[in-house]
């Protein structure tokens, strides 16, 4: 287990890390622009976060505290594995606490707890090109970005309204960064889009299979595209979290049985646990028994 000496710090060799850092710096210099980089093979399949892992490996230092979330949760396979990976190859401290993490690698959520200056959010991106499903040619989409021809993006939103009566895109909702580049915020729910706007944290995006890195520097304008008569809106939920009673957070539906029973709970597990520790209770939260004599419920 302690064969850490056989790996370079944070798995990648120093030359590769320099190459990726150059791409990151270029991405920060041109907010929203997709920088090509020489993505490496990682010890995990494409689609499992190879881009995010390479970005994290290139920026992480011995003093960093790493948090990894997958759909908001710290305890799913992907999150646990990546956390264990960096613990092993970089020997860094890991946490599930949003506030104390310096690097947060995420798959498809932005934590509910507001991010602060000095934190870095690393997104795992499957398809970095927001125009891809409308225009399959890479040569053409790069030209469209270069010439700022973004009419096509609105064609997609138009189609949504024509078909569904409203903009039905709920995730990977396109945004315009600093008034210039249209960017795919990775498949985060559009609920999280407003959190990107003028965020004090640095946001880095890595797409391993597609070999692209892009970035949103702190305090950068990130505006969701919309129509004047159909403005951008985030999802709303009818009920609070069933476990911690939080409102105005993003909820996951959890199936409870095979009779149609279900509940809505926070997708951000760290946020939910913190609230329960503070004593918030949702209507399906398990009873807590502070006094030891009440520990065993009658069966």
């Amino acid at each position: 287990m302690t064969d850490i000496a056989t790996y370079n710090f944070a798995y990648l060799d120093e030359q590769t890390k320099r190459m990726i850092r150059r791409a990151i710096l270029k991405g920060i210099a041109i907010p929203g622009y997709q920088v090509p980089f020489a993505s490496r093979e990682m010890p995990m399949p494409y689609g499992w976060g190879t881009g995010g892992v390479q970005v994290t490996a290139s920026i992480i230092g011995p003093d960093d505290v790493l948090k990894v979330i997958d759909q908001g949760a710290d305890d799913t396979t992907n999150a646990v594995s990546i956390r264990a990976f960096f613990k092993k190859v970089a020997n860094v401290a890991v946490t599930t606490d949003t506030a104390s993490a310096t690097i947060i690698q995420t798959r498809h959520r932005i934590p509910e707890h507001p991010l602060t200056a000095g934190q870095v959010l690393v997104y795992q991106v499957p398809i970095p090109e927001p125009l891809r499903f409308l225009e399959p040619r890479e040569t053409e989409t790069r030209k469209m970005h270069a010439l700022e021809e973004y009419g096509l993006m609105h064609v997609k939103l138009y189609e949504d309204i024509a078909k569904h009566g409203r903009i039905a895109t709920t995730y990977a909702y396109p945004v315009k960064v600093e008034g210039r580049y249209v960017m795919d915020p990775s498949p985060t729910p559009k609920f999280d889009n407003p959190k990107m706007h003028r965020s004090p944290a640095l946001q880095l995006f890595g797409a391993g299979r597609e070999k692209r890195i892009y970035a949103v520097p702190p305090f950068t304008d990130v505006v969701s595209l919309d129509f004047e008569d159909h403005p951008f809106e985030v999802q709303t939920f009818d009920q609070p979290c069933a476990l911690c009673a939080a409102e105005n957070v993003y909820l996951d539906e959890v199936i409870l049985d095979d009779h149609g029973g279900h509940m809505f709970v926070c997708s951000d597990t760290d946020h939910c646990e913190k609230r329960r520790q503070e004593g918030h209770r949702g209507h399906l939260a398990p009873e807590i028994h502070l006094a030891s004599e009440k520990m065993e419920p009658a069966r």
Binding site: L152, V155, Y158
Partner: peptide, 12 residues
Amino acid sequence: GERLMAVGDRHY
């Protein structure tokens, strides 16, 4: 509508 949106029309 594509051409209209391409030249900046933003009213559905």
